[in-house]
């Protein structure tokens, strides 16, 4: 079943004619065939290289295709507007891949989304619209590789699956569907980082695990979904057997997630926190990865997670091993 997205999800790309948007529309479409079109204002009525219809507005795209998810690749200055356009058009899952969105724009956008959902305190599973990102790799629910898909021109097999769906820039082929996992169990992954998530997917796949859904929530200080939102959805998902949470320095999300896990989560949980060696006051690449106070440090987060019974990998090389340990496999 997975969380957020599944084989019935229909995806559009906002910014489909931009260089980045076009490349990843192709990548997602080849992985799962679930992309149904895209938008670029002023280019409506034409088709992209994959033969997908282009619309001027998200409203038109939703009316014509029944899309319920979007990935946003528009430039940072227009990202908040694109998020709100998608939400107003009835899109349910919004992935904002765009990096460099001003914090003040996100404060307003997030407040308006919270209003649409009936308030910021409404639990994740009851929200009408889910925002993932900005500045994130996206979300993927892997499908079996035995599907009738295409291969890349150079012979590499980054694609293809059936019954899966990929919304974002992650390499699809490293993910494993439960039907192809040696151990027959699936882990749900939630992470603030891109390539570190790929590393975790790679490690879990190589150790015989599948992934139910992987959500890259992004590295910005004000964003959509956070760790807790994904963890509570994974806890309720019958196809997720364990949870891996990848955090980093900055903010207190991981500490709140630890408290939530302690009180409400029955499934095995493993974690890794990046940035134990990061100096205070320096922004480590992500806008949100900066140590401001005592709760922001990796050590404070690791201590809170351990106190909640979470299996914490101290080395990034041990993320896969930590999941197996938490699952007692």
């Amino acid at each position: 079943m997975a969380i957020l997205i599944n084989k019935d999800t229909k995806v559009i790309c906002q910014g489909i004619t931009g260089s980045f948007g076009a490349v990843h529309t192709k990548g997602c479409h080849e992985y799962c065939g679930r992309v149904v079109g895209g938008t670029t204002p002023g280019k409506g009525g034409s088709k992209d290289d994959n033969g997908l219809p282009i619309f001027d507005t998200v409203r038109q795209a939703v009316d014509a295709t029944g899309a319920d998810a979007t990935m946003i690749f528009v430039p940072p200055a227009f990202a908040a507007d694109a998020i709100l356009e998608a939400a107003a058009a009835g899109i349910r899952v919004i992935c904002c891949i765009t990096e460099g969105v001003p914090v003040q724009d996100m404060i307003k956008a997030r407040a308006l989304l919270d209003d649409m959902n009936g308030g910021a305190d409404v639990p994740a599973e009851k929200r009408r619209v889910h925002l993932i990102g900005p500045n994130c790799p996206g979300v993927i629910t892997p499908g079996p590789k035995s599907g009738a898909g295409r291969r890349n021109a150079d012979g590499s097999v980054d694609c293809y699956t059936n019954a899966g769906v990929k919304i974002g820039i992650m390499p699809g082929y490293i993910h494993t569907h439960i039907s192809e996992a040696k151990l027959g169990k699936a882990v749900g992954i939630v992470s603030r980082s891109g390539t570190l998530t790929y590393e975790a997917v790679w490690q879990t796949s190589h150790r015989g695990l599948a992934q139910s859904t992987c959500v890259g929530i992004g590295g910005d200080p004000v964003r959509g979904m956070n760790h807790i939102d994904c963890i509570r959805m994974f806890e309720a998902d019958p196809d997720t057997h364990a949870i891996l949470m990848i955090g980093e320095i900055g903010g207190t999300d991981e500490i709140e997630a630890a408290q939530y896990v302690k009180q409400h989560v029955k499934k095995p949980v493993a974690a890794f926190i990046a940035g134990r060696t990061a100096p205070p006051g320096r922004r480590m690449g992500h806008a949100g990865a900066i140590i401001g106070g005592a709760d922001d440090t990796a050590d404070a987060k690791i201590a809170a997670l351990k106190a909640a019974g979470v299996e914490v990998a101290m080395s990034p090389a041990d993320m896969g091993a930590a999941v197996l340990k938490a699952m007692k496999l």
């Binding site: 820039i169 992470s191 603030r192 980082s193 891109g194 390539t195 570190l196 998530t197 590393e199 590295g219 990848i246 980093e248 320095i249 890794f272 990046a274 940035g275 134990r276 060696t277 990061a278 320096r282 480590m284 690449g285 992500h286 990865a289 990796a298 101290m314 080395s315 990034p316 090389a317």
Partner: peptide, 30 residues
Amino acid sequence: LVNGAGLAMATMDIIKLHGGDPANFLDVGG
């Protein structure tokens, strides 16, 4: 020299775990 901010931080961490000392954080981007 690492691609991605999270992986770059994690690389610094694993160097320290093995007794080394990172000279820099460098994210080369996608």
